[in-house]
Design a protein around this nucleic acid. Structure first.
Lengths: 263, 263
DNA sequence: ATAATTTAGTGTGACCAAAACACTTGTAAT
DNA sequence: ATTACAAGTGTTTTGGTCACACTAAATTAT
C-alpha cells in the first residue's frame, strides 16, 4: 500500500477526461438506478416579542395536508443545496437574503410516507423587524411565526429537526457571533443581550455580558470572533423615561451573512 | 397567524392516514420527478506510525478510474444513511464496527461529471491496530492508508471533503473525547497524548495534558466528557529501557462508539 | 559494576476568563 | 420635587491554562 502519486490531472477539470471515462459517460444512463428524492428543509429563527420564533408553513397538499411544517421542497437538478434552500424559503414565505448554514441531513427510510426522501436541513436566522409580511407560496396555504416553546403538531419528523436546530443554535451562541444576525443594523447592547437571554432562556448579568463582548473582540478565534466586530456609534437612541442609550453596529455584517463555516 | 394546535395525530404513526392522504399516496408515482443520485462517502482516520492516516480506495471504474478516492457509494432505497456508510466502508475496505458520525452534505451540481450526485459524508475513527488487513471490494481495486500530509491526487471533490473532515476532527478534539476512539482498549497516557499531538501537529506539555484530563473528568459537559471516563488499571506495561508505565482504560468505550451527537 | 540513556511521573506560580455582586446617573412622568 | 426606570460601570473570587524542571526506574553500553 504505497503513497504513490497519480499522473497529473486536476480533479476539478472535467473538460479533459481520458477516453475510458468519455466512453463511460456516453453509456451512462442516470435512469438505470433507483434513486431517493432529495429535499431541503429550512429552520428559520427570529427573535420577536421577547420570544424565539420559527417560521412554519401550512401544507396545502398531502401528505400531512393542513399540518404545519418547516418550509422546504425538492432540490432541483441544477441548483446547489444552499440555493435550493434559499429558493424554497423565498417561494413559500417571501423571506430572502438571510444568514443560512447547513444543519444536518436526515435520511431515515421511513421518514416520508410517500417514498424515500432524504432531506438536507438548513438553519437560517433573520432579524425580527426585517420581515414585514409573510406571503404564502404555491405549496403553502399559510405561513407564520411560532414560538419554539408553543408549537403545533408538525408534519413528518419536523419536530425532531426543529429540536435539533434549536440545540445547535444554543450551542453556536457560545462560540460564534451568529447572534448578530438576529439584531437590526444599529442596536443597543441591551438589545443584543436580550437575544442571548431569549435563546438560552435565562437571565444574564449585564456587566459580565458586556465584559465578555469586549474580551471576545480580541479573542484568539478570528473566524468565530473577528477583531473589532463591534463599532460604537456616535448616534444614540433616546431612552424611554431614562437616559439616551449608545448604539452599536456590527462590522462586516454583510460578509457574515454569506455562509457559516460549520466546523 | 395563530399558534393553533392541530387535531391529535402523531406525525410518527403513518398507519392511519386520512382519506385525502390515502388517495394521494395511491396516485403518487415516484418516477414523476427527476431526482439526483445520493451517495455516502466516508473519511476514516486512524493514527499509525506517528502519523494521521486516511483510508482511500483506488477506483476500479470511471469516472476517475484509477484515481484514489474516499470509500463510498450509492445509498440503497431501504437503508439509513448511516447504515449505508457502514456498509460501503465494509464492502470496499473490510473495515467494520467503528465510530462514525455525519460530517456534511456536499451537493454542488457539477461535483460529479456523470450526473447530479449529492453526497452525505461521514467522519469515522478507528484504532490503528484494530484493522489487520484491508480487503479491496468490488468497486475498488486497492485500498490503503495514506498520510493526510502526503496525499495522492483524489477523485471528485474528495480532497476538499478530506480537508473539511480534518478540520472538524481537529476542532472536535478540543471539546469532546473522540480521541479515545483512536487508542487501543488499554493505553498509556503518553500514547493518548501522542494522538492529540499528531492530529494537532504540535507538541504538548506532559503535565498540562494530564492535568487537563483530570479536569475534564469532572467537567460541566457530561455529554462530551462523561464523568469518570478514565480508569486507571492495576496492570502496567513494561517500559523499553526505562520503568513500567501505568495503563488506563476508557470507561464506556462501547457506548461512545455508537453515534456522535454532532451538535 | 558503573555510567549513560531513555522515558515516566509529578507540582508551582503567573496569567486570564468567568461569575457573583450594587450603586450612580439621566430622563420622563407625576 | 419626588418617583420610576433602565443605562452604565468595577472589584473580588474562583478555576482553568500555560510555562517550566527535576527525580525515579529500567535498560544498554562501557
Amino acid at each position: 500500500m504505497s503513497n504513490q502519486t497519480q499522473t497529473a490531472q486536476n480533479s476539478a477539470d472535467h473538460q479533459e477526461l481520458p477516453p475510458a471515462e468519455k466512453e463511460f459517460l456516453a453509456n451512462y444512463n442516470p435512469a438505470d438506478y433507483e434513486r431517493p428524492s432529495v429535499t431541503v428543509d429550512i429552520v428559520i429563527f427570529t427573535v420577536r416579542d421577547n420570544d424565539l420564533k420559527v417560521l412554519l408553513v401550512k401544507r396545502r397538499f398531502a401528505p400531512f395536508q393542513g399540518y404545519w411544517a418547516l418550509p422546504g421542497g425538492f432540490v432541483k437538478m441544477n441548483e446547489s443545496l444552499e440555493a435550493s434552500a434559499m429558493r424554497e424559503l423565498k417561494d413559500e414565505t417571501g423571506v430572502e437574503n438571510v444568514y443560512i448554514e447547513q444543519l444536518y441531513t436526515f435520511g431515515d427510510p421511513q421518514r416520508d410516507p410517500r417514498t424515500r426522501v432524504i432531506t438536507v436541513t438548513y438553519l437560517a436566522l433573520v432579524e425580527g423587524q426585517q420581515i414585514k409580511t409573510l406571503q404564502a407560496g404555491s405549496d403553502a396555504s399559510e405561513a407564520g411565526w411560532f414560538s419554539v416553546y408553543q408549537l403545533p403538531e408538525l408534519a413528518f419528523d419536523h419536530h425532531y429537526i426543529l429540536d435539533y436546530a434549536h440545540k445547535r443554535l444554543r450551542a453556536k451562541l457560545e462560540y460564534t457571533n451568529v447572534a448578530f444576525q438576529l439584531v437590526p443594523e444599529k442596536f443597543t447592547l441591551t438589545e443584543l443581550q436580550r437575544i442571548y437571554e431569549i435563546i438560552w432562556n435565562q437571565k444574564l448579568d449585564k456587566r459580565n455580558f458586556r465584559k465578555r463582548l469586549s474580551i471576545r473582540e480580541r479573542s484568539a478565534y478570528p473566524e468565530a470572533n473577528p477583531h473589532q466586530m463591534l463599532e460604537e456609534l456616535e448616534e444614540t437612541r433616546p431612552g424611554g423615561n431614562f437616559g439616551p442609550t449608545k448604539l452599536y453596529r456590527f462590522i462586516d455584517r454583510v460578509e457574515r451573512i454569506v455562509r457559516g463555516i460549520g466546523v
